[in-house]
Amino acid sequence: MDGEELTEQETALYDRQIRVWGPNGQRRLTKSHIFVSGIKGTVAEFCKNIVLAGVGSVTLMDDGLVNEDTLNANFLIPPDDNAYMGKTVAEVCSDSLKEFNPMVLVSVAKGDLSTLGAEFFEKFDVVVIGYSSRATKKAVNEKWRKLSKQVAFYTVDCRNSCAEIFVDLQNYKYTKKTLEETLEYELHFPSFHEAITIPWKLIPRRTSKLYFAMRVIEVFEETEGRKPGECSLLDLARVLEISKKLFMANSVSESNILDSVLERLITDTTEFPPACAIVGGILAQVLSRFLFAFNLLLMGNLVIFTREILVSQEVIKAISRKGEPLKNFFYFDAQDGKGMIEDIANYSK
């Protein structure tokens, strides 16, 4: 189908996973280029997973210098200060990741995420933003949305034993084939800004509390001028106050349902390593399923978002077998052990 066959070396190395997604799925992975920013425990797990799976390239951005704090939950950084002294997190992680799979191109990009131009993202199929402020996520998401080439956009945050993944695939079309007919579906993903500003009254009651808690934390960090994750139990009163205000502004009454989860989210923001493994695994899984469908659409010289889409048998198989892409939030809380998908969009529009 799409060009070269897998080499003998690739077939031997990827044998067990080719049995899951087939040689075409593997070829698609090897042609995907991933951008990752903000490398702490969960993102380190994610990077390990996609490098092992054999994506084409991974570009890392994290200019923070390695220190004691960055070691937590991040097994990509050896705890030897002679080795990491003066190096950035991205540089040290890049060295470790290269060893996992010599067939994947791992590199470091320097710079500030919030000031990167839109053209920077052109060369990637997937953008993953870890542990960033609300403003940065929003800015990158907006730039990315204006690109001529469509890429997948994810954000991921893990605090304590809770985590959130956000997914934006814009207008995503896919088909499902039954025995008789081919059905075409289109999913509209709200932008990051839209997804976090939906009036709470419109959100179903049983939605994960973590969605609301994360919005409260974002507002807290922004109004207090804090870096992501920079808070302690001393801030509890202020955080609860913001929570109350947000509930009032949204005309939703049960304002104290978040209190206990907020307390957990601010007392200790370091990641719980088992949660990193789980969420980093889910993110990689979500992404690989997306790639199987997406890349093929691009490869057949088809523009993914046109009306008269012709989809090869392969895509249908890939999609109908793997189901719909995740839309548009994923939550994990180690305390109850649930991994929930929440579809949060303003359907009244």
Partner: peptide, 14 residues
């Protein structure tokens, strides 16, 4: 041979 991918193993280990 039962097929296997890294991500599921990581999740399960967590």
């Amino acid at each position: 041979i039962v097929h296997a991918v890294a991500t599921t193993n990581a999740i399960i280990a967590g």
